[in-house]
Design a protein around this nucleic acid. Structure first.
Length: 457
RNA sequence: GCCAGGGUGGCGUAAUUUGGCAAGCGUGGGGGACUGUGGAUCCCCAGAUUCGGGUUCAAAUCCCGGCCCUGGCACCA
């Protein structure tokens, strides 16, 4: 075989999903779709490309995140970019057509789509082109809306086959940390820096973090509170409330409102979720999340293997009450989450979660000498009988110089594609019979055509 | 972006330590034999040192750089 010597690679961070991969993606999307549909969510697919300003100026991106945009000039010299999430385009769409949606709110939408980010170091579970399944609940500020999305997130993951002990959802509130720190510091940049440091508590020791915080701002009282926050493990709400929230809730209006909000959410979750689902829920003050558009409740899901955290978060969400306003909507508080499907697939493989009914091959292959018209006619008749029964089958396409070659080649085809049964059409078709072959047992028998469908049940 | 380790036919690998025969093997591919119970077996064929430069009589092997991959850090949506 002579080939061009140059090989054309795929773009860094991009990859091909082959049938076996894509069937898993399809399973994930079907399973979660089943869940969200029952809650009244409807599908949406915004365009892949947006004007640059939609993504940069208003997308709630920090400067570092803006660097990770796929953005370029088109033939008309306009800046356009690939979407990095769907919350932003959806917010734009709602803002743009605001009047037409008002009476329908709250909108319940879901999506399963590709996103693009120019990751500087793509690797496993982190691609430049990746898939998300997400929902958006647009136009409600109710804590019940928060609880609804969290409930759906849990049910979605369960529907994929994750076991309860493998799922943990960590809930926090943007305004609590912000409220506390803003009591001591006014500079917004500094507050953000400190929040990012707190988010690192898994990776740095408390001393390191505190000393870095001191570099930003020296304040004994703040330091005391922050050390306390850093020593808080993720825990049940009541415990967090008694140990910590009760102490800081009256610091200022912001923290007070946030604590009340979190309390309401907890009560809702207690009502919506059963005891078993409630056991996945923990409250963790150090969850920060990157997007600047988040405003209130935020949450992340991590997968656990043998009680140890396995990789980064696979699902994240939160409230973005002011994002749609930026695109022309009025006061449209909303919340949503997105599941990183690629990471989800990695986790499922890692945990050995098997997908039942994952069908990646036909049930039967009909082998026939296509140069004999009456054989071919019979083959198609049989294929139609099988397909009407929901049995997936393929038929010989090629002409062979001999019967032996045909059998060799066609049986190899069935073998290579793991097709479990073959049906061979030969002279006995004149008696209304065909050869039915079990490829695994390597056994065969001659049966009447009418009996074929019974064999497949 | 930083550090470490890698990259040999389509795929999986041997040879790299110690530079030196024609880069070996398996699988997959093409062709053929066995001439209608066959997916077996046998024979033949094609096919690779990631790319660019350097050292050397000689480079898959040593050196430098690019690209890509895998870990770890950083960043993370």
């Amino acid at each position: 075989m002579v080939r061009e010597s140059k090989k054309y690679e795929e773009l860094r961070g991009f990859r091909t999903l082959f049938p076996d991969d894509l069937l898993i993606y399809k399973f994930i999307s079907d399973s979660i779709e089943d869940v969200v549909k029952k809650w009244g969510y409807l599908p949406i697919e915004p365009p892949s490309l947006e004007y640059g300003e939609v993504l940069t100026a208003k997308g709630g991106l920090s400067p570092e995140q803006a660097k990770e945009l796929f953005i370029f000039k088109d033939h008309d010299d306009r800046w356009i970019g690939l979407r990095f999430d769907l919350t932003t385009p959806i917010a734009r769409i709602v803002g743009y057509n605001y009047e037409s949606f008002v009476t329908k709110m709250p909108l319940r939408w879901y999506y399963f789509s590709k996103m693009w980010r120019y990751e500087n170091d793509p690797k496993k579970g982190r691609y430049r082109e990746f898939w998300q399944f997400g929902i958006e609940l647009i136009g409600s500020s109710s804590h019940l809306a928060d609880a609804e999305t969290i409930s759906i997130a849990i049910k979605s993951l369960l529907s994929l086959g994750f076991k309860p002990e493998q799922i943990k959802i960590f809930i926090s509130h943007r305004e609590i940390l912000w409220g506390i720190i803003s009591n001591f510091i006014e500079d917004q940049e500094k507050i953000l820096e400190i929040i990012r440091l707190i988010d690192k508590k898994d990776k740095m020791t408390m001393e390191e973090i505190i000393s870095k915080i001191k570099e930003i701002d020296e304040n004994e009282e703040l330091e005391k509170i922050l050390s306390e926050i850093l020593s808080l493990e993720p825990m049940e709400f009541q415990k967090l409330y008694d140990n910590f929230l009760v102490k800081i809730k009256d610091l200022n209006d912001k923290t007070k409102k946030a604590v009340e909000n979190l309390n309401d959410l907890f009560n809702d979750l207690n009502i919506i979720l059963n005891e078993y689902e409630m056991s996945f829920v923990l409250f963790d003050m150090s969850i920060a999340r990157g997007f600047d558009y988040y405003t209130g409740i935020i949450y992340e899901v991590y997968i656990y293997k043998n009680n140890k955290r396995d990789g980064g978060s696979i699902l994240g969400g939160g409230r973005y009450d002011r994002l749609i306003d930026l695109y022309g909507g009025l006061n449209t508080p909303s919340i949503g989450f997105a599941l990183g499907v690629d990471r989800c697939v990695e986790s499922m493989k890692e945990l050995g979660i098997k997908i039942e009914n994952l069908k990646n091959r036909p049930d039967a292959h009909i082998i026939v000498d296509i140069s004999i018209n009456e054989y071919l006619k019979s083959a198609f008749k049989i294929s139609e009988i099988l397909r009407n029964e929901g049995i997936v089958c393929t038929i010989t396409l090629n002409k062979y110089s001999s019967w032996r070659k045909m059998l060799k080649s066609e049986l190899e085809y069935a073998d290579a594609n793991k097709i479990p049964y073959t049906i061979i059409i030969d002279d006995s078709i004149k008696q209304g019979k065909v050869i039915y072959k079990d490829m695994n047992k390597r056994s065969q028998e001659t049966i009447f055509i009418e009996n074929i469908k019974n064999i497949f049940n």
